[in-house]
Each structure stands twice: as C-alpha cells, then as structure tokens.
C-alpha cells in the first residue's frame, strides 16, 4: 500500500510534466488518500502542493488557493520554513491571478519575512518584485516604489542583470 502511494505520486508528477493536468490531479488525489491512511504528513503536504500546482494550469485558481493553504498549514506543523515560504509565494501569486491584490500582498509579505529569516536573497528579491506589482495594482505607487528600489538593490547585490 505504501509503494502504491509512491507510484500514484510519481504517476501524478509524470502526467503533470506531460501537461496532462486533469490526469495529474486524479493520481495526486489517490496519493493524498494513501498518505492520510498512513498518517504520512510529509507525503500529504507534497500531494497538496502538487494538487495546487495542477489546478493553476487548469485555470482553477480558487481550488489551487485552498490546496496551497493546506500546504501552508502542514508546513507549519512540520516546521519546514522553506516550504512555508514557498506556500506563501504560491498563495501570493494565486491571489494575484484571482485579482485579490490585498490578499496577494499579505502572502507576499509573509514570504518576504521568512525569506529574510532564512537569509534567502533570491527569495527576498522575488518577494519585493511581487510586492511592487501588488501595490501598483492597488493604486499605491509610493509603496510600490519602495519595494521596486529594494528589488533593484537585491538584484544588483546578487548580480541578476535580468
């Protein structure tokens, strides 16, 4: 049964990489059920991330957000800050797609704080870039400028010319 769970997960990932997002979700849901059966929180967390990602490409941003929230909740339980940061970043981007810029900014800020705690300059740069865009969309150019400047500073520091 445990091997079956891993096989479902691998099949889900393979379909995902082939661009078969509906099939991917079918397999990842099977993977999720087996992870729950075993109380395997790490596998459950991975399944939620994979399900969130697949729903982005199915255009179901609302469903993706719910899966990413489950990922976020479990990453905190598992005390995995890198995954927590990634979940916040995914939620920020998903709420941007949902045109809910206030909530997008909330998650990008949470991502920024964790990236700073982890001394992840690339993550911090991405968070600032996203926050600049969110504040432009909210009609707050002064705050957008603050984050754009920070984004420029970090990009120069890490040598990201793009």
């Amino acid at each position: 049964r445990a091997a079956q769970g891993r096989a479902y997960g691998n099949l889900g990932n393979t379909h995902y990489l082939l661009g078969n997002f509906t099939e991917a979700t079918t397999f990842h849901k099977e993977r999720l059920a087996i992870a729950k059966e075993f109380g395997d929180k790490a596998a459950e967390r991975r399944a939620y991330s994979n399900l969130g990602n697949a729903h982005i490409f199915l255009g179901r941003f609302d469903v993706a957000a719910e899966y990413y929230k489950k990922t976020l909740q479990l990453s905190r339980q598992l005390r995995d800050q890198a995954v927590e940061a990634q979940a916040c970043y995914s939620l920020g981007n998903t709420y941007t797609l949902l045109q809910d810029y206030e909530r997008a900014a909330e998650y990008h800020l949470r991502h920024l704080v964790i990236a700073q705690e982890l001394a992840d300059r690339v993550g911090e740069g991405r968070a600032c870039w996203s926050l600049g865009n969110a504040y432009v969309s909210m009609g707050s150019p002064a705050q957008a400028l603050t984050f754009a400047k920070k984004h420029l500073q970090i990009s120069q520091e890490i040598g990201d010319r793009n």
Binding site: G9, A47, F57, G59, D62, N93, T96, L97, R126, S137
Partner: peptide
C-alpha cells in the same frame, strides 16, 4: 475555470514558467 487574465504581470508569468517544471517528488 477562470481565464489567465493577468499574464501581463511579469512576476506571475515567471512563477508560472518555473511552476510548469516543479513537482514534489516521492
């Protein structure tokens, strides 16, 4: 589902490009 109406947001576009190849492996 909802349409990808915000593809002009560079940071989101970049994230989605990375996401296409992002799988949580077993």
């Amino acid at each position: 589902g909802q349409r990808l109406h915000l593809m002009q947001v560079d940071s989101v576009q970049r994230w989605m490009e990375d996401l296409k190849l992002m799988t949580e492996c077993e």
